[in-house]
Design a protein around this nucleic acid. Sequence first.
DNA 1: CTGAAAGCGCTTACAG
DNA 2: CTGAAAGCGCTTACAG
Lengths: 351, 351
Amino acid sequence: MSKSPTPEEGASEGLRRRPTINDIARLAGVSKKTVSRVINASPFVRDDTRERIQAVIAELGFAPDPQARGLAYGRAFLIGLVYDNPNPQYVVNMQLGLLDGMRNSGFELVVHPCDRSSPTFLDDLRAFIERQRLYGVVLTPSVSEDERAAKLMADIGCAYVRVASVTLDTPDHMIETRDRLGGREAAAHLAELGHTKIAFLSGPPTFRSSHERRSGFEEALNERGLSLAKAYVAEGAYTYESGVECGRALLEMADRPTAIFAGNDEMAAGVLQAARQLGVRVPEDVSVVGFDDFQIASRLWPTLTTVRTPTREIGRLAVERLMGREDDSRDPKSRLPSLVVRESTAPPAKR
Amino acid sequence: MSKSPTPEEGASEGLRRRPTINDIARLAGVSKKTVSRVINASPFVRDDTRERIQAVIAELGFAPDPQARGLAYGRAFLIGLVYDNPNPQYVVNMQLGLLDGMRNSGFELVVHPCDRSSPTFLDDLRAFIERQRLYGVVLTPSVSEDERAAKLMADIGCAYVRVASVTLDTPDHMIETRDRLGGREAAAHLAELGHTKIAFLSGPPTFRSSHERRSGFEEALNERGLSLAKAYVAEGAYTYESGVECGRALLEMADRPTAIFAGNDEMAAGVLQAARQLGVRVPEDVSVVGFDDFQIASRLWPTLTTVRTPTREIGRLAVERLMGREDDSRDPKSRLPSLVVRESTAPPAKR
DNA sequence: CTGAAAGCGCTTACAG
DNA sequence: CTGAAAGCGCTTACAG
């Protein structure tokens, strides 16, 4: 019953071998197969046997060796993050979310940045998974939207969850970020402020989120009797530079908009820069709304009103779904986009 | 000699078992121990034997299973990144550098964000390493400066490399970032522009880099007959907010400096914000230099002159040292800090 | 509900 | 320079 080391154990202090399944079996007076059943939460163990084994496990601080388990199981206790989003904050938040969900699970996180346009994209991805026989992977936008990648996972029998703004797969393979709702929030905010001449700066058409953010935005404008004029829609590339360029084009129009909703914060930062160069005041002359709520949003001047995306929370959900350990006790609202109002939006100037 | 599947192999296409060391041994007509020697680059194999085995390995596309190797070897083929730098760009760049160095090595990267001030910091770190029996870890600032962490690595026999701005350990455990040289570059630039009333905005004293950046800066000023007045030294916290606050204090002085060197880009961004609030023009009234060259430096207005730190390159070096596979063929300058001149610096106004 | 046997794919001693 | 044996710490069939 004591946890203090016996003389024998104490002999080679420090280098004490860590306990194995055999130690547990011997001390609990069962076979190692039964210990294995307890480790793997098999229902075919009598309650008192299970309790006895669990007590020994706790006393020795036993944790099964993931390498040995993995070798026998044919699959490593590793989960991969596959990403191509160039924004570091997105990547780090996503990693933190995955780690949140994997805590005390015995799994570890390995990362795989990739490039969909590379000729070796699929081969690299396959090698990444097969090399260590990953248990499963989480795919994030835009690589999550790539059907070739999803098909590869299915072909090689690797578990996967895709994080995306729309439903692209069966529920067990999907976490939706509901970007459409974020677009709606932006529209509601600008409409409430009294704007009517409203522009949209889109991301590239190859990203599903570009479409989702726009259609949510347009939909909610329409519901309020407003509309998005063709001339007020510009297509950017989710980059700062494209934000500057498109922002300038919109702000140089003879009948310029009084509000611009940019598809992400990077482009919104570009619009602020364009406004500064043109001598257009924000928010007095034009209101600007972004999407993401990355750190830059609160570093800009004026600080940026934007739609916050709960990336970390989404990451946790994705990995929980992958491991089949979903926790339904949390507030479902925490996984939805939400508006953060700062200084870059105000009612339109009186004419 | 053909790589096309024989009828027998082709039977269960797609699910074809991947080749093992036994397959290689059988086809090469040697024992699996000898194949193992080739895999592990043992010198005790006759050249013709080695070549024969390597040919078979290449033909079958064999790669040894890291789990099985790890189990027998007592150590996983995984390398951990332990970090507590809150800047996402630093983290992502460091990860990319580690992955650069690990390419084709058979190792995979696992990540461990941590918090030195947590009461469970050391226990968490130990669990992270022992759970999967990591091969080794790379520690980055500021956790790399923590002697408790280094001692833990030594105690549990885990290989490690510390990335830090100064020499804290033996060469096999260190990659130095030479921040002092970066400070010197900033000083040389401001001196050449003709500044004499020069201020320094320091990071927190608990970070070695704060001291290194300052002393390099001061040293190079002194060499040019300039000095850093006590009144012109402020202590920040490497955060944007501290940059705003200290920037304001410096810019509100009766005899305000004509140039400010901030210890990192975050604080430099804060100084620009303070200048804007006070109506002080940059660079006309005051020049500002940062440190890091993160993305924000080129998004600010004016764009920021700063010292670029080659984080990705440093990461590659660190992991190569850890694996004992250093490549000395690269330009040694690529690992040193270097000045990037942009819009935020100019000669001081004529009086 | 429990266990003895065989095996996962490698490496470490130990021989020769 | 090469190999047969034993073992790393688990799990998967297969019995009972």
